[in-house]
Simulated assay, not measured.
Amino acid sequence: MSQFEKKLAEMGVTLPEAPAPAANYVPYVQAGDILHVSGQIAKDESGLITGKLGHDMDVAAGAEAARACAIALLAQVKAACGGDLDRLVRVVKLTGFVNSTADFTEQPQVINGASDFIGEALGEAGRHARAAVSAVSLPFGVAVEIDGVFQIR
């Protein structure tokens, strides 16, 4: 078990199999030591995490949806690294999209669910640049979608 996965296990998290793409795209593209991971939508063991922030979902629930996206991102990184998550050097950038109403302004607090999880799980390697933006809707009505850029060896 990799060092990162040991930390995840201490946190009570086991990475799932990397989700398959839902359309005509690939889950990740590697260019040199940079790995671009396609957007991961909010999903847990019960299925899709749907909702609109500022309407029928609060910030805490949105942050949990963002955390679910972060877990899926790490699952994709592990797959791209041939099953060895310790090939991850660092998280470079996350871009979070929040399904929210026009007057909702707490997108950063929602995406903190992913950033806080990544930071706790990966330590210094998890410190990243980030964007948190509003979207009028997201695929399948999910609350959050996050894509990421990672450096791997």
Rank of each mutant, 00 (worst) to 15 (best):
G141N: 12
E5A: 06
V110T: 08
A114Q: 07
I118Y: 08
K78Q: 13
A68P: 05
A63V: 07
V13T: 12
I71Y: 02
A72E: 11
I34Y: 10
V89M: 10
R90Q: 13
R87K: 15
A68K: 06
V149K: 09
V37E: 07
F97L: 15
G96L: 07
G141K: 09
L122K: 03
A121D: 11
Q40H: 06
E145P: 02
E10N: 13
L35E: 10
V13D: 11
F97M: 14
P139W: 04
A121P: 04
L74I: 05
G62A: 06
G54Q: 08
R127N: 13
S134L: 01
V142H: 01
G82S: 08
L94R: 04
N24E: 15
P19L: 00
L85T: 03
H128E: 13
L35D: 09
T95A: 12
L138P: 07
R127Q: 15
T95C: 11
G82E: 09
A132M: 01
R90G: 09
G83M: 01
Q151P: 03
A9I: 09
Q30Y: 04
P108M: 02
A79F: 00
A42C: 08
A80W: 00
G148P: 06
K52H: 08
M1T: 14
T95S: 13
Y25P: 05
V110A: 07
L15V: 12
H55T: 14
P108L: 03
S46G: 13
C69H: 08
H36S: 14
V91A: 11
D33T: 07
V92Y: 03
A80G: 06
D58W: 05
A135S: 14
S134Q: 09
N112Q: 13
M11P: 09
A42N: 09
G119N: 13
V136M: 10
G82F: 03
K93H: 15
K93Q: 15
A9Q: 15
E10R: 09
V92G: 01
G148K: 06
A42T: 11
A132L: 03
F150W: 00
R67V: 05
A65P: 01
A23H: 12
A80Y: 01
F140I: 10
K7A: 13
G12P: 08
I152M: 00
E120M: 10
K43L: 11
D44P: 04
D84R: 00
R130G: 13
G83I: 03
P21T: 10
A18G: 06
A79Q: 12
V92C: 01
A121Y: 02
I111F: 00
T101Y: 01
L73K: 03
F117H: 08
A22M: 14
L48Y: 15
E124N: 13
G82W: 01
A18S: 14
D84S: 03
V29F: 01
G113C: 05
V59Y: 03
